[in-house]
């Protein structure tokens, strides 16, 4: 990892064209730390130090190449895909997702939109590993997600709620967040409803504090404990697992509703992309 440190600066320069390059992810985090007193934001000095060498930056570089490569049976690049701001426009696209897409008539998050693009634009079969393999730094998904998300670094979360479906999904997500079920009666507030709470040694983000919550939802992030870059959908799965509730299906409308709500909870706060987590 340290070997790569020397290259971190050129990486940042290469990937960032404008706004998102002006502030490195660690500077965005520092800004949040300076603005409020939060045990969650400050809990890992080590991670803050390592952020300039975040392995996720390399996953993002791979993603850049993949994004621009002509692929799939149709031999086209992802530049033909619309992530909400027009074909190929990535700057600021991710902080405005999930959003409603006219072409599918659905609210989609980044992960489902990438799948849509792979199958509908590039022509991959739905069961192609490029489409189905969602986890791990080596997966196409994580490379693409990281690259696309990085084009929103330092920008404010602002998922649109103008379309009635966007609003409906956000509101259902709020209900899901509060919904208790299962062997432990947990809802999300059980662990994310108060500041400075710890589950064992981990300090948890408070969903009511947008400065905490923007870091909480800043995925993709390199998870040091997993030695892999992880997605929002992976985090959702992890929390339902701890809640003793069944696995939420990645890309299900339920997962997108939940992510619509959690993005709304961070509205106006700058995204840290890519982030580094425990």
């Amino acid at each position: 990892m340290f070997r790569k440190a020397l290259l971190a600066l050129p990486v940042a320069l290469a990937l960032g064209a404008t706004a998102h390059a002006e502030k490195a992810p660690e500077e965005v985090l520092q800004g949040l730390i300076d603005s409020i007193d939060s045990r969650y934001l400050t809990q890992s000095e080590m991670n803050i130090m390592m952020m300039p060498d975040n392995p996720a930056l390399w996953v993002g570089i791979d993603g850049e190449e993949l994004f621009h490569a002509a692929r799939g049976p149709n031999n086209v690049s992802m530049e033909a895909c619309d992530f909400g701001k027009g074909p190929g426009v990535l700057e600021g696209a991710y902080v405005e997702m999930p959003r409603y897409f006219e072409d599918t008539g659905k609210v989609m998050d980044l992960e489902t939109r990438i799948m849509h693009c792979m199958t509908e634009v590039q022509g991959f079969a739905a069961d192609d590993p490029a489409v189905t393999q969602r986890h791990g730094s080596g997966s196409d998904h994580m490379k693409l997600q990281t690259y696309i998300a990085m084009q929103s670094n330092a920008m404010e979360w602002n998922n649109p709620l103008d379309h009635p479906l966007e609003k409906a999904m956000r509101d259902a997500g709020e209900v899901l967040f509060a919904r208790r079920a299962g062997m432990s009666d947990f809802n999300c507030y059980a662990c994310h409803g108060q500041s400075g709470k710890q589950v064992r040694a981990s300090v948890l983000p408070d969903a009511n504090v947008p400065e905490d919550w923007t870091k909480a939802i800043s995925w993709p992030a390199f998870r040091v404990g997993h030695d892999n870059v992880r997605s929002s959908q992976h985090r959702v799965r992890g929390c339902y697992y701890q809640m003793r509730q069944p696995g939420m299906l990645a890309g299900s409308d339920a997962s997108i509703a939940l992510i619509s709500y959690w993005t709304d909870m961070a509205r106006g706060q700058p995204a840290i992309l890519p982030d580094m987590k425990r």
């Binding site: 409906a168 997500g173 209900v175 939420m248 409308d253 339920a254 509703a257």
Partner: peptide, 16 residues
């Protein structure tokens, strides 16, 4: 909608 997303949507519900 939340109940529908859990138990019905996506051909059999949003969870396994």
């Amino acid at each position: 909608l939340a109940e529908y997303l859990i138990f019905e949507a996506n051909d059999g519900g949003g969870f396994n």
